[in-house]
Design a protein around this nucleic acid. Structure first.
Length: 298
DNA sequence: CACCATGTTCCTTG
DNA sequence: CCAAGGAACATGGT
């Protein structure tokens, strides 16, 4: 379930529930997700530690813990990969099939499950330093983006997925942001005009901010027992209806009519990943390409 | 059976 | 040295 908005909503959800909880025991069921931390070290470090804070950086969760007994603080890094989930459940409940790691907190247990085991929960925080600025933070300006794009011949869509340029944009919101900005995904990033960079910069922020807002109001079922399993790309509301208040405009809509112009949405492959776009709304003409250039709306 | 999937990392090629 | 492309990771859904 991962991209910046989902991770952000998850962090907000978990933070107050984990605060001050003590890790009584650690069950490692798939050591692969700890990489590169050795299981023994993780167990020793976490046992007796107390949750102090939870933040997000890019698509990573950063759990801050106070080490057992001492005043030493440590960071535990979480990443959901493609299919990961993290949630609390009653300790007596049975574990999901693909539980990778369980932290026993008393009445409740913290579960990290991930069918594909691409996700991570590790003491190695080195990856964080390679991340670009937070798209919703002050470090991400249109000047910064212009500079980051200006020398590369790589397609702008591929560039948006580069976590060292901006942290947290994934395959879904990259397509969404380009649609909103009216920019063709195959355009070489160095070919963007200044106005397009500006629109892209704004669109990235708007698309992510809207998704966070949507996810914050859904009443998600983090354990995945119901319809709303914490993924809010797709999903249904309480009555089983697909909720569709202006959600995804192009992603996974190949062949369906563009909401803006009715032209069929196209799917192409870039860097081995699907890209969806509207061939009519996202042309490189100079004129009125922006789908929505109005309010900043954060 | 075939193909697709929200992500990252490693290896090869140019 | 760097940029770009592709495979690998592992499982499930359609």
């Amino acid at each position: 379930m991962p991209e910046l908005p989902e991770v952000e909503v998850l962090a907000r959800h978990l933070a107050p529930r984990l605060k001050d909880k003590v890790i009584l025991d650690v069950e490692i069921r798939r050591a692969r997700v700890l990489r590169p931390t050795p299981p023994k070290q993780l167990r020793k470090t976490l046992r007796g530690a107390r949750f102090a804070g939870l933040t997000r950086r890019g698509k990573y969760l950063v759990f801050t813990l106070r080490a057992a007994g001492g005043r030493k603080m440590l960071d535990l890094l979480g990443h959901l990969g493609m299919s990961g989930r993290m949630y609390l459940q009653p300790s007596a409940a049975s574990l999901p099939k693909h539980a990778a790691l369980v932290l026993r907190l008393g009445q409740e247990s913290f579960i990290f499950e991930d069918p594909r085991y691409f996700g991570r929960l590790t003491l190695d925080a080195s990856v964080i330093s390679a991340l670009g600025p937070e798209p919703l933070g002050d470090g991400f300006t249109s000047d910064y983006l212009a500079n980051a794009l200006k020398r590369s011949a790589q397609a702008v869509k591929v560039k948006l997925l580069d976590q060292s340029i901006v942290a947290g944009v994934g395959n879904i919101y990259a397509s969404e942001a380009l649609f909103r900005a009216g920019i063709p995904p195959r355009l070489a990033s160095r070919r963007l005009r200044r106005r397009q960079v500006e629109q892209l910069w704004r669109s990235v922020r708007e698309v992510l901010a809207r998704a966070i807002r949507l996810g914050s109001t859904l009443g998600l079922d983090w354990a995945g027992t119901g319809n709303n399993d914490g993924i809010f790309y797709y999903g249904r509301d309480a009555s089983g209806q697909e909720f569709f208040e202006e959600r995804l405009q192009v992603y996974d809509r190949a062949g369906k009519p563009c909401y803006r112009c009715q032209a069929p949405i196209k799917r192409i492959v870039q860097g081995g990943r699907s890209t969806f776009y509207c061939p009519h709304c996202q042309r490189n003409g100079d004129a009125k390409t922006s789908v929505d250039g109005s309010g900043v709306d954060l």
